[in-house]
């Protein structure tokens, strides 16, 4: 066996167990990432054989790209709504489904299922629902709300995106919350009950504080998902009508490959990366501070 005592032995053990993974991670994630960052400082268009170093010019272009900033603003709005709605709904479902109602295992599986469908398929299904099924229902019963396809109206198309995202990811977050709720010691809740705490008080002063680590994880996941969503955006609205629901990931992609301004798209992608890292780190840090000892 390799000895763990010497420094050399430690490295050996590490390489034995984590070496292949480290190698794979380094070559397919770290290296391309660093190379990508380097490319933002050049004028490479993604195709030509030669390119030159241009310094920070691309980043200046990012700041001048008005469409990027409006997409970014829209994404912030989208993230705010989806994070709040997803977590509120996921927690509510988790709370109900751990309270011992009938068929709760079946219901848990049911709420989780949307998460198993890929974004593109999901987008196409909902596209059909919004532009055909709901319109049919609207015409049949004369409901003003559904008379016209939601996807043809900028605000409603935005809400269609939010609804489908929440529908998709709340099941996943629900599973995490359920795991958290099941891990809360029964004696604490019982003690609170004996002390005369009402249901709401138990929730507010016992359950929620103990659940903070899980809330942090869920908010982190939904934040990160919200910022980089692309497949659903592409399949459900295609950024339409008239580019009014183009979220930032889609804008970056179109800038690079459709407008064929690869270097600017790449810089915007890196900028987006930095923003996501900033926001999520801040969120995790704050979340950690809210945690309590049992």
């Amino acid at each position: 066996m390799v000895s763990e005592k010497t420094p050399f032995g430690k490295v050996g053990t590490y390489l034995l167990f984590a070496g292949p993974t480290t190698f794979a991670f380094f070559t397919v994630v770290i290296l391309p990432f660093l190379f990508g960052v380097y490319l933002t400082l050049t004028n490479w268009n993604g195709l030509s054989a030669t390119y030159v170093f241009v310094g920070l010019k691309n980043y200046r272009m990012v700041f001048e790209d008005r469409a990027f900033w409006s997409s970014f603003g829209l994404t912030l709005r989208y993230v705010a709504y989806t994070v709040v709605l997803t977590n509120v709904i996921a927690f509510t479902l988790a709370y109900l489904l751990t309270s011992g109602i009938r068929g709760q295992n079946f219901l848990r599986a049911g709420f989780f299922v949307p998460n198993l469908i890929g974004g593109i398929v999901l987008g196409l299904i909902w596209r059909f629902v919004f532009s055909n099924v709901l319109v049919y229902v609207g015409k049949r019963f004369g409901w003003e709300l559904f008379l016209r396809s939601w996807l043809a109206h900028p605000d409603k198309a935005f809400w269609a995106l939010v609804i489908v995202s929440v529908w998709q990811s709340s099941g996943y977050m629900m599973v995490i919350y359920i795991a958290g709720l099941m891990g809360i010691p029964k004696d604490l809740v019982e003690a609170a009950t004996i002390e005369g705490a009402t249901g709401l008080q138990r929730l507010r002063y016992v359950i929620l504080p103990l659940l903070t680590p899980f809330t942090t994880v869920c908010i982190f996941l939904s934040l990160q998902r919200g910022f980089i969503v692309y497949d659903l955006n592409k399949a459900l609205t295609e950024g339409g009508p008239y580019k009014s629901t183009e979220l930032v990931a889609m804008h970056v992609y179109e800038k690079a490959f459709l407008a064929q301004q690869y270097e600017i798209g790449q810089s915007e992608a890196f900028f987006l990366f930095a923003m996501i890292v900033g926001v999520t780190l801040a969120q995790v840090y704050l979340g950690k501070r809210l945690e309590v000892e049992q």
Binding site: P154, Y242, E254, L258, A259, Q260
Partner: peptide, 20 residues
């Protein structure tokens, strides 16, 4: 035409078509 002409001018025409 520029590569993103169809997408951009198309979006403007959609706005016009939709009376926006």
């Amino acid at each position: 035409l520029p590569a993103d002409h169809w997408r951009m001018v198309g979006a403007f025409m959609q706005k016009y078509l939709g009376n926006a």
